[in-house]
Amino acid sequence: MQIKASVEINAEPDRVFRLYQDATRWVDWDPEVAAASLPDGLKLGAKGWLKPKSGPKANIQIVEVTQGLSFSVQTRLPLCRMWFGHSLSSSSGSTVATHWVEFKGPLSFLFRYLVGRSIQASLPNTMLGLKRASETRVSAP
């Protein structure tokens, strides 16, 4: 079962996707991220790390990228993998951004319970942060 949230953003998908491309700046718009790094950039197979504000630092790997439209990150937990998906679709001059989280593996039920509840509670704030940052960049000179 996926945890999912969407938001409509008054900006083109390319502008929103640029915010995804610099992992070190995810902290600027995602209130749940304390720090992140993707030294090789947002490309398939790239490895890095993410430190959530509440929780341990996790190694991440980019497992899907469609330039300007989507990317997915995977992290490994004991007997479980957690996927974070990010997709953008154009809607008459604006963008609908959707983020989702999914747990797979023998202990997915446990991590869905332990970690999933806080993700589900915080995901709307992440989406609002992405919206604000994208729209601010639109109006900035």
Rank of each mutant, 00 (worst) to 15 (best):
K53S: 04
T24D: 14
R25P: 00
P56K: 09
G45Q: 04
H86N: 11
I119S: 02
A58V: 15
E8G: 05
A34W: 00
V96S: 12
I119V: 15
E102D: 12
K47W: 02
S37L: 05
P78K: 06
K57Q: 10
A5P: 06
A58M: 15
G48S: 10
M1Q: 14
L114I: 11
F71W: 13
A121N: 07
S89Y: 04
K104W: 11
F103Q: 04
V7R: 06
I119W: 04
Q61R: 12
S94Y: 07
E8M: 10
W26T: 01
R18Q: 14
V65C: 03
L38A: 00
T24S: 14
T75E: 06
W83N: 13
E64W: 11
D30C: 01
W29Y: 09
R76Y: 10
R25L: 02
P52W: 01
L130M: 14
C80Q: 03
G45I: 06
K53C: 06
I60N: 07
S6D: 15
R137G: 05
F17L: 10
L88E: 02
T98R: 13
R76I: 13
L69N: 08
W29E: 01
V27L: 07
L110R: 09
E12C: 03
Q21P: 04
P39F: 03
A11P: 01
W49R: 00
M82S: 09
L38F: 00
G129D: 01
G68T: 09
L123G: 11
W100P: 01
G45A: 07
L130I: 11
S89A: 07
K57V: 05
V65E: 07
V65T: 08
L110H: 05
R81Q: 09
W29C: 03
F111K: 10
A46D: 03
